[in-house]
Design a binder for these strands. Structure first.
Ligand SMILES: [Zn+2]
Ligand SMILES: [Zn+2]
Ligand SMILES: [Zn+2]
Ligand SMILES: [Zn+2]
Lengths: 148, 148
DNA sequence: CTTGACCTTAGATTAAACTCCAAGGTTTAT
DNA sequence: ATAAACCTTGGAGTTTAATCTAAGGTCAAG
């Protein structure tokens, strides 16, 4: 039986996190000491590990709650259900990824056109791109042309 | 002079969003009507466009606030300052991108190993990966082997 | 028998960017 | 003159995953 601080340290999380997981129905201590301290079993430890592994692949705590309810009642679920969760998460991740790639491209283009020097920002190509119409933000930019 | 609903429609945002921007110091109407209605000028419209363009490249509203303060006082800032903001955003985006790519790879691997069929999840390779030690979550997986 | 480390609870706070609501005043059209 | 559509304000709610605080109880060492 681990006390909250022990289990936390073992899994590299804070006690607060474990209380938070309990409050949200992800992981409750299997027992309490006479004085009310939470006592966790190795099964609790395994469950926490499951949660933390699911986090490393990108699932949110709500999604992990679903996963856990399947995990605890496997025989009443099909592979299709589990794969469905993974595939829907994958689709979300790929959508976000696509957005970030757009950001990355735009930012790289803005960065590359700006001289980055000590010249006044009055003719900065980055600001000019943001001032002008949005089609231009993503087009190839003229470098800043600071008059000498 | 546009009323809030007009400007909102023109820029494809909601009136609430404009009030929100005002409350957070990004964009205030230049005037008010006798009855207290917000009245926006074309300069306000341009400023809103600037904000929306900055959003399309990934800047947060706080970052846009910085950008706007430079924009309004260009001569006291250098290209280096502007490029600094862009480059730091780019670094953030790339860090997040790297995390999402890890998620994507793990999820794709999990998905690919699971048969996705109507078989009971008792031997689902996805659940097995999440149950076993974390090194395994990212390794190549055995497909589910449902005993017949 | 007292310090320090640990534990308890409920509830507030954080970041981000809105979105929605209530209760009421204004404008426009019929 | 009255209904519809618009505007005002302040404040609450949403999502995510904690983190922090306050006020207090418990446990082991010295
Ligand atoms: Zn320059
Ligand atoms: Zn520049
Ligand atoms: Zn299967
Ligand atoms: Zn499966």
């Amino acid at each position: 039986m681990y006390r909250i601080g022990e289990l936390a340290q073992l899994c590299d999380v804070k006690p607060d996190t474990l209380r938070f997981y309990e409050k949200h129905g992800l992981l409750a201590a299997s027992a309490r000491s006479d004085s009310g301290y939470r006592l966790y079993t190795t099964a609790d430890f395994e469950r926490l590990k499951f949660i933390l592994r699911a986090k490393t692949v990108g699932f949110t705590l709500n999604e992990i709650t679903e996963l856990l309810s399947i995990e605890l009642d496997k025989s009443n679920w099909a592979c299709a259900d589990v794969k469905g969760l993974v595939d829907s998460k994958l689709a979300q991740v790929e959508a976000k990824l696509a957005e970030l790639v757009r950001f990355q491209k735009s930012l790289a283009q803005l960065s590359q056109a700006c001289c980055g020097g000590p010249e006044s920002a009055e003719h900065c190509s980055i600001l000019e791109a943001l001032e002008s119409n949005s089609a231009t933000v993503n087009a190839v930019k003229e470098p800043c042309r600071h008059s000498k």
